[in-house]
Design a protein around this nucleic acid. Structure first.
Length: 272
DNA sequence: AGACAGACCTGTGAGC
DNA sequence: TGCTCACAGGTCTGTC
């Protein structure tokens, strides 16, 4: 479910209920997420005030004075703002309480997500130390993709999904961006021209930016922090549209497995 | 080093 | 109706 736009949407949804507030209570019902949830370390943060919040790649960071809560939604996670009295459902693993009325609740059926308590310096933590640039920041562009791709035989789709190259481009938006840039997903990354990479970088920025404005993409179960679906699904050009006509030229959209992930493209619009 | 496969989990929908 | 199977939005880890 959650790619960068979904995580950004989630962050924006919970921010008014978290930023500047004091953590009053933590309730952990299930510690078996991707890594064991450090109950005691989270409990020690109670009484401390949130000084800032940010997103890095697909991680949500809740910063306190001397520690940070790091959350990842994995494949199936969501964070929602709920009334404090709301009883937990199946897979509601963690509640964070920041005021009298609300809780922030992590639900994650597949338990691929995580919730950790980190000590500074944050940027030296293994999960954050080797991340590539943010796709929506100015330091990411076609030039960077071109330089990093020289000599690489890997399929360009797998290349842009590599978090060391650029963060936050997941399976849906990788297919969508390549469509927009006219590039075949299976082309070797090292064989693509600088000019094409400029188009691709712009496409990634545009697709992610639009998806954030739409509140993310809801395929099956993604909901924003207020429980509403994301609306980017209606904008998808190729993802999950195999055998349907391309919106641009009418050719049948094809699918193919690359790097163990389903990939969608238009054989006529994507020729490079 | 780069590239790939496997691993972690549960829910859903298709096909029988 | 109920069973089995394939597949799903992520990403770390190990192996070649």
């Amino acid at each position: 479910m959650p790619e960068l736009p979904e995580v950004e949407t989630t962050l924006r949804g919970i921010e008014p209920f978290v930023d500047g507030k004091t953590l009053t209570k933590v309730c952990v019902r299930e510690t078996r997420l991707r890594w064991p949830v450090p109950k005691a370390a989270l409990a020690r943060l109670c009484g401390q005030r949130v000084v800032s919040m940010e997103r890095r790649a697909k991680y949500i960071l809740i910063n306190f004075d001397k520690a940070t809560i790091l959350l990842h939604l994995g494949m199936s996670g969501s964070l929602r703002v709920l009334p404090r009295a709301q009883s937990p459902d199946k897979h509601d693993h963690i509640d964070l309480e920041f005021d009298e009325q609300h809780i922030i609740r992590l639900n994650d059926p597949r338990r691929f997500g995580c919730c950790l308590a980190l000590e500074p310096p944050l940027d030296q933590h293994a999960l954050l130390a080797n991340l590539g640039p943010e796709p929506l920041e100015a330091d990411f562009g076609g030039n960077l993709l071109f330089r990093r791709s020289r000599g690489r035989k890997q399929a360009v789709k797998n290349f842009i999904m590599d978090g060391k190259v650029v963060v936050g481009v997941g399976n849906i938006y990788a297919s969508e961006s390549l469509f927009k840039a006219g590039i075949r997903p299976g082309t070797a990354a090292g064989r693509i021209s600088k000019k094409r990479y400029e188009l691709l970088a712009s496409a990634i920025k545009e697709v992610l930016g639009k998806a954030i404005l739409a509140g993310g993409t809801t395929l099956n179960d993604f909901t924003q922090a207020d429980g509403k679906p994301g609306y980017f699904r209606h904008e998808l050009q190729v993802y999950a549209r195999d055998n349907e006509p391309c919106h641009q030229c009418g050719t049948k959209i094809r699918s193919k497995v690359l790097g163990q992930r389903n990939t969608f493209y238009c054989p006529s619009c994507q020729r490079y």
